[in-house]
């Protein structure tokens, strides 16, 4: 199964998940994605990736690590009926999974499923270069 198929499977098994993107935080690049929108606008997925990168890298991340006294692993944003979740990939510090949930979704249920699935998107023995991922290898 290629990464895009694994993303589709993970999104569909996550209740209320509308869009899911797997991103390279350093490159601020969407590596693969899946969405139930008929034609997901790439700009929206790129913006989700950018918000994930701002939260999980750089000075904000360093300050949050210090405040929590442990490394940040997850983030949840709720506003105006929109829920976004962000999860660092445990096996790859520069990668993360970002998702958009519908307003009625339970983010805790979604996070639990995504936590268990995040490492299956790109197994450790697979290539991790952005080019390889975008080819779906």
């Amino acid at each position: 199964m290629v990464p895009t198929e694994r993303m589709k499977s993970l999104r569909r098994s996550t209740p209320g998940c509308r869009s899911l993107v797997y991103v390279d935080l350093k490159a601020r690049l969407v590596l693969c994605s899946d969405s139930d929108l008929p034609v997901p606008p790439q700009e929206a997925l790129d913006a989700l990736c950018l918000r994930g990168a701002r939260l999980l890298t750089g000075s904000l991340r360093a300050a949050a690590d210090a405040a929590l006294a442990e490394p940040v692993a997850e983030a949840v944003a709720v506003q105006g009926g929109r829920i976004e979740v962000y999860l660092c990939t445990p096996a790859a510090p520069d990668e993360a999974l970002c998702g958009v949930l519908e307003a009625s979704a339970d983010p805790h249920v979604a996070l639990d499923i995504l936590r268990r699935g995040i490492d299956t998107i790109l197994p450790e023995d697979a290539a991790r270069s952005p080019a390889d991922l975008q080819k779906g290898s």
């Binding site: 405040a67 929590l68 490394p71 940040v72 692993a73 997850e74 983030a75 709720v78």
Partner: peptide, 15 residues
């Protein structure tokens, strides 16, 4: 609006 960050452990704190 609410935005929170947390560590890997589910028993810790959130910011």
């Amino acid at each position: 609006s609410c935005l929170f960050l947390s560590g890997a452990g589910q028993q810790g704190m959130l910011l």
